[in-house]
Design a protein around this nucleic acid. Structure first.
Length: 381
DNA sequence: AAGCCTAACAACCGCAGGGCA
DNA sequence: GTGCCCTGCGGTTGTTAGGCT
């Protein structure tokens, strides 16, 4: 297969995007949506290929992007997800709202890999390096996939009487939409099965709005000292996240569902946990719910009272003052999920923009990239 | 101050897969 | 079935900033 046809065209710009280009792209998408990416550059008046526009939008201009450095919890989550998914960055990113696959991939390659190596962990296998090296030698006598598929995941269910072990496909095991049934069709009979099943369901449903099922990795720990363990559920901790999660917004689907484990019904919602009607910090496995559940197809994941707040441009592009452009948040952070689910999946409604502009709140997002761009391109004003 | 090195990050490239005529 | 177009993904490269000597 050859290169994309647009790439053959001459006079297409490459390299870093200028503020003017960003502006054109944002203005176009905010007014019309992206539609067919290949037509975006022409309609937006850009000398770029559609692919470049798409990338720029997804990795940089999208308003729902979370800015700033990754928290330790986010890094831990990435490590945990990577141990399950391998280099499937898009699927990992799907569990980290506001983060892009590119961003996570960069973080992994530039930082996390080194940290793991310093801790004596092979970043590819998530096992101690010495063991990974030994297995490399052994693997010559095995089919690679067979060997890798024997990665053992131990999940201690806390309340469970025993630590359960089960073999699951390794990060290197491909499970596309066609063959994913080897995971998703498992009937979870034990807690670890449940979580794996839950997780895989979550990432598959994240794009389709299908089968509900998320679980949170915050209480999964990465044990570098245990050569047999890739992941384990921290004993005596809840399966469920705190609503004060720094990673996920309170209304994120990850923290809304219900389930049965070993005959015990657990459920939770996006507002609060309770045990027998009393407040719970989530340390009790016997979480009882407050009745509201959230099926989370994209269309009904979140329904906010407020309209999504979108940054809109006032007047012609040349009227925009760069310092304002840099400083103005696109919308408040608490509305990012609403925006992502309600707006990004469809074309933006220009009619909403006036009221959205009016509802913009004070800066809660430090847009480091715009600041960097500003620095890169000098004084704009 | 200049040069070098490294980390961080933006962007490109090639490929796979799906939709459609 | 085939070819084309488009999108999305993952690997890789290029660029920049900042620290160090």
């Amino acid at each position: 297969m050859g290169r994309h046809s647009c790439c053959y065209k001459q006079k297409l710009r490459k390299g870093l995007w200028s503020p003017e280009e960003d502006e054109k792209l944002m203005k176009h998408i905010s007014q019309y949506g992206h539609g067919c990416w290949s037509s975006v550059p022409k309609l937006a008046g850009l000398q770029r290929c559609g692919k470049s526009c798409r990338l720029r939008w997804i990795n940089y201009l999208r308003p729902d992007l979370k800015r700033g450095t990754f928290s330790q919890q986010e890094e831990n989550l990435i490590i945990e997800l990577h141990s399950l998914l391998g280099n499937r960055w898009s699927q990992i990113a799907a569990q980290l709202p506001g983060r892009t696959d590119n961003e996570i991939k960069n973080l992994w390659n530039s930082s996390i890999k080194k940290k793991l190596k310093l801790r004596g962990i092979d970043p590819n296998t998530h096992k101690p390096i010495s063991e990974a090296e030994n297995e490399e030698g052994e693997s010559e006598s095995h089919t690679t996939n067979e060997k890798l598929s024997e990665k053992v995941i131990i999940i201690d269910a806390g309340n469970s009487d025993k630590t359960m072990e089960r073999k699951y496909p390794s990060p290197n095991t491909k499970y596309s939409s066609n063959n994913s049934s080897n995971l998703t069709n498992l009937t979870p009979s034990t807690t670890d099965e449940f979580f794996l099943d839950r997780f895989v369901s979550s990432h598959e449903s994240s794009s389709t709005g299908g089968n509900p099922g998320y679980f949170n990795f915050q209480h999964l720990s990465y044990d570098s000292g245990n050569p047999n363990t890739s992941l384990f559920l921290t004993p005596n901790t809840s399966f469920f996240p705190s609503i004060s999660s720094p990673i996920l917004p309170a209304n994120h689907p990850l923290i809304s569902s219900s389930l049965d484990i070993n005959g015990v019904h657990h459920s939770w919602n996006n507002c609060a946990f309770s045990t027998n009607g009393s407040s719970s910090n989530g340390s009790n496995n016997s979480i009882e719910l407050q009745s509201q559940n959230f099926p989370w197809g994209l269309e009904n994941c979140v329904k906010s009272e407020k309209e999504p707040e979108i940054h809109s441009f006032k007047g012609e592009p040349e009227e925009i003052k760069w310092p304002e452009y840099v400083q103005t948040p696109f919308f408040t952070i608490q509305n990012q999920t609403e925006f992502a689910t309600e707006v990004l999946s469809t074309n933006w409604d220009p009619n909403l923009q006036q009221q959205q502009q009016q509802s913009l709140e004070g800066g809660s997002i430090c847009d480091r990239n715009f600041q960097r761009l500003s620095a890169n391109y000098g004084q704009i004003s």
